[in-house]
Design a protein around this nucleic acid. Structure first.
Lengths: 183, 183
DNA sequence: CCCTTTTGAGACGGCTTCGTCTCATTAGGC
DNA sequence: GCCTAATGAGACGAAGCCGTCTCAAAAGGG
């Protein structure tokens, strides 16, 4: 009988990804439970969003761990990362735009850790000579977030095929649109 | 005495860019007018957003015209485009995320025109051999929107210098992160 | 088979925002 | 200097959503 908190979170993530302004009632219905039960597990909307943020952080940390960003070439590490992060792209896109709403508020420190790990990957690529040095690691990190969000929305609306998601993102981020003469 | 409608729109755009959930009262105060006057010019919040969408569309069309996307190399055309669109990046970012909220609703047909013109640019680059053909024009268009949004937010939060905005976007989109061995 | 725990349904008040309205004030043309 | 039109300030009800509460029903363990 007891509600699976994690499953509620995941269904909430899926719904809020599609419609970021969903009400608590819609979130509850999507999870197949009543609004009362939803409130018993999450004190309020803020608590729900913060729990989603926590979930997103955990997923990201896990993805970063699995991707072994320190191994092999930075390019391949980045490809592994994008591939691994694909299942969580929707949640990430939601959290990314949600963060823009918290104007003055201090953001969760966990994101600083994620940002640092991503920036370190780009910096490693620059130091090894794989990546160009005129694009800052901070910007590449930001661009990665943006492309993940764009990709998630484009797939959701059918503008891009789901199977191409990780390829399109990784290739654009790594190689850009220009046709390569070398390699 | 009479209120300058266009100026109200622009201040609303600037505010909503920073805080997409601003109330009508905040929008009015930001424009230096009363809520009553704001309502005299825009029937409601929906009307305001739609007017902003119209403004964004006009700006985009104007930018596309000024950029002369058909002239010269596709790369240079894209660089001109990004440079020209910079002043409107905030409004674009707002409208881009706002569109995600209108789940089922049919979006303004004007965006289809913009999309088509952008996709045509990327297709031209592919046909001329400048751009790779494994990234679809639709995805490149989507990625351009995403990077503009990310860039606008990154500049707003101070993670990227404002002066680097167009360079970072155009270079990443065109050349990617990989270091080029050839020219 | 009973008893405890969890859930669902719904009601309730409160809060925020919206859209409308009124009325006094002010700006600016004539 | 008057007259008209626009504006500001504020009140008002309506609507939507939230958070809490109650109570009956259902589940599931012992």
């Amino acid at each position: 009988m007891s509600v699976d908190r994690d499953q509620v979170l995941r269904s909430a993530a899926a719904l809020l990804t599609r419609k970021a302004t969903s009400t608590m009632d819609e979130v509850a219905r999507a999870a197949g439970i009543s609004r009362a039960t939803l409130h018993r597990h999450f004190a309020g909307r803020d608590a729900l969003v913060r729990a989603l943020e926590e979930l997103g952080l955990q997923e990201c940390e896990a993805v970063l761990d699995r991707s072994e960003l320190g191994a092999g070439s930075a390019q391949d590490a980045l490809r592994r990362l994008v591939k691994e992060i694909e299942p969580h792209a929707g949640l990430l896109a939601f959290l990314y735009t949600e963060n823009q709403l918290f104007e003055g508020d201090t953001q969760h420190e966990g994101w600083a850790r994620i940002d640092a790990r991503l920036a370190a990957l780009f910096r490693r690529g620059q130091e090894s000579g794989e990546f160009r040095i005129d694009l800052t690691p901070a910007w590449l990190t930001e661009a990665l977030y943006g492309l993940i969000g764009s990709g998630a929305w484009a797939v959701q609306d059918g503008r891009v095929a789901a199977k191409d998601f990780s390829y399109m993102i990784a290739e654009l981020l790594i190689g850009g649109a220009r046709r390569r003469v070398d390699s």
